[in-house]
Simulated scan of single mutants.
Amino acid sequence: MIATLLGAIAVSPWMRAALRYGAIAVAVLLFLLSLRRSGERAGRLAERLETTENANDVRRRMLDAAARRPRDRSDLADRLRDGEF
């Protein structure tokens, strides 16, 4: 039953052209949706990379500040007297 219906549709040249163009349109639509989705994914990854870089920069600055801190009270007093703080 279905085979005869599809056979009748495929016999007409106009219907074959319509089916061909319809299939092309569906393929292009699916391609564009896939492209949009991959673009969104790339945007999220770029945002995550930027956030990670900012966090790493903050950690690096904290470690640099900790490395330059006075070792004890006398070192702190010396720095305050010299005006290096």
Results as ranks from 00 to 15, higher is better:
residue 2 I to A: 12
residue 3 A to V: 02
residue 3 A to T: 03
residue 4 T to E: 13
residue 8 A to H: 05
residue 9 I to T: 09
residue 10 A to R: 13
residue 10 A to V: 11
residue 15 M to C: 13
residue 17 A to P: 02
residue 17 A to K: 00
residue 17 A to Y: 01
residue 18 A to N: 06
residue 18 A to F: 09
residue 19 L to H: 00
residue 19 L to Y: 02
residue 20 R to E: 01
residue 21 Y to L: 04
residue 24 I to D: 01
residue 24 I to Q: 01
residue 25 A to I: 01
residue 26 V to F: 00
residue 28 V to K: 05
residue 28 V to R: 03
residue 29 L to W: 01
residue 32 L to A: 05
residue 33 L to V: 08
residue 35 L to Y: 14
residue 39 G to E: 14
residue 39 G to P: 11
residue 40 E to M: 09
residue 41 R to G: 01
residue 41 R to V: 01
residue 41 R to A: 09
residue 43 G to W: 09
residue 44 R to A: 07
residue 47 E to W: 03
residue 47 E to L: 01
residue 47 E to A: 06
residue 47 E to K: 04
residue 47 E to N: 04
residue 47 E to C: 01
residue 48 R to Q: 15
residue 50 E to C: 07
residue 52 T to F: 08
residue 52 T to P: 06
residue 53 E to H: 15
residue 58 V to A: 10
residue 58 V to H: 14
residue 60 R to Y: 09
residue 60 R to N: 05
residue 62 M to T: 10
residue 62 M to S: 09
residue 63 L to P: 04
residue 65 A to F: 05
residue 65 A to M: 05
residue 66 A to G: 03
residue 66 A to Y: 04
residue 69 R to D: 07
residue 69 R to L: 09
residue 70 P to M: 06
residue 72 D to C: 01
residue 77 A to E: 08
residue 78 D to P: 06
residue 79 R to G: 03
residue 80 L to V: 09
residue 80 L to P: 03
residue 80 L to R: 00
residue 82 D to T: 13
residue 84 E to M: 07
